[in-house]
Design a protein around this nucleic acid. Structure first.
Lengths: 207, 207
DNA sequence: TGAAAACTGAACTAAATAGTTTATAAAGGG
DNA sequence: CCCTTTATAAACTATTTAGTTCAGTTTTCA
């Protein structure tokens, strides 16, 4: 194994194929994307494409996995350890909401949900490499607050999930049901501040 | 207009078609359902089906509309006017969560989200006849609490959306990403109580 | 009862589209 | 420079599926 990252891949146009597939799948979803379109977008012949991926499903899974990892690596910039809770929460809420409303976030969510009959596994993998990370990060953060004595939380995992959920108030339903696809800073700020206020009201230790 | 409810329908097998279409669409989604399957399920010839609905899309929209209305009528049993806030909130949270996790709720959500490229309008209609009703009901309820002086809320619509969102903590992401599809009463109660506690901590007037 | 309306089944068209094959061309390393 | 690996274009198979057509049957109702 000269290269630790690949067992199946070989040949020079592999990345081209993956990129083309990503573009088309992201634009059209699994069913909506045709293999011919992907080959065209990748500027590669269908035969080449099929020499890398024995079928469309495998190609799709590979693209999804790849994209999730790529996204997970980004937007994981930590928060300085001595930031006040309010500010730290505000930062995290903003990051989360930005991701959720990003074109990629929206697209990936739709694909996971819509294709979940065909690919239940896809949803799970996305969860692991997205929402789960946020959850874990929040749990760690809240736990720290508890040990510091600035937060009083009984059920830390629940508190983390509540916070994540609060970040989606108003915005998420409108997004998901095609009422809107972009949101102004003001709209997001309202929700973020609301989420932080609510979280603090419930869990901050009174001083 | 001899019958106020219908402009397009005629003939005796109309309801059969609708019922068959509902079953198949709910089971397989829009793309997954074939017209032949629907005709078979409805015990009707394809020609009959097409005599009612000029194409598959229209049939689908009709089914979706119909189902949404049907569901909206149910589960709207009001809450006695002098119920304590905590109990009223608990009731509403339970109802909401039950709907979200119901087979129909899950199915409809998936279809709306997955098919939203083809049918952005479908999401909007579903929103109007589902989440919107919940929102309005919560707004009314919270407003009442404010005028009674038991709640202190600045941004009532936001508070309503926050509460609705809190009801989905933990459960919703797991459901949506195919980690689980049914939830025990204990799991739901944990979330419901958590939501009510949080809402009260933030908005209840201290006595 | 008789005619119009509704329905049937089955064959058909037309269009996508996943996946295969083949003969050919271009790289590229040794 | 040649030989192996990789890539290509295009034609082809096979399948699925939306939507149509039509000759014949059943239902309805006046």
């Amino acid at each position: 194994m000269p290269d630790g990252s690949s067992q199946v891949k070989r040949g020079r146009k592999f990345d081209q194929v993956l990129k083309g597939a990503r573009d088309v799948f992201m634009a059209d979803g699994f069913e909506g994307a045709s293999v011919d379109d992907i080959a065209k977008a990748a500027q590669v012949s269908k035969a080449t494409l099929y020499s890398y991926f024995p079928d469309k499903k495998l190609l799709f899974m590979e693209v999804a996995r790849h994209e999730c990892n790529r996204q997970a690596e980004m937007a994981m910039d930590g928060i300085a350890p001595d930031t006040p809770i309010r500010d730290a929460l505000t930062d995290m809420a903003t990051q989360l909401l930005d991701f959720i409303t990003s074109p990629f976030g929206q697209r990936m969510f739709r694909i996971c949900v819509g294709e979940s009959d065909r690919f239940p596994q896809l949803g799970r993998e996305f969860y692991e490499s997205g929402p789960k990370l946020v959850h874990d990060r929040l749990v760690a953060f809240i736990s720290e607050g508890v040990t510091k004595g600035v937060l009083a939380v009984d059920d830390v995992p629940l508190a983390a999930d509540q916070f994540a959920e609060l970040c989606k108030a108003d915005i998420f339903p409108r997004m998901v049901f095609s009422m809107a696809s972009t949101f102004s800073k003001a709209e997001k700020d309202r929700v973020v501040i609301g989420a932080v206020d609510m979280f603090m009201a419930r869990y901050a230790v009174r001083t």
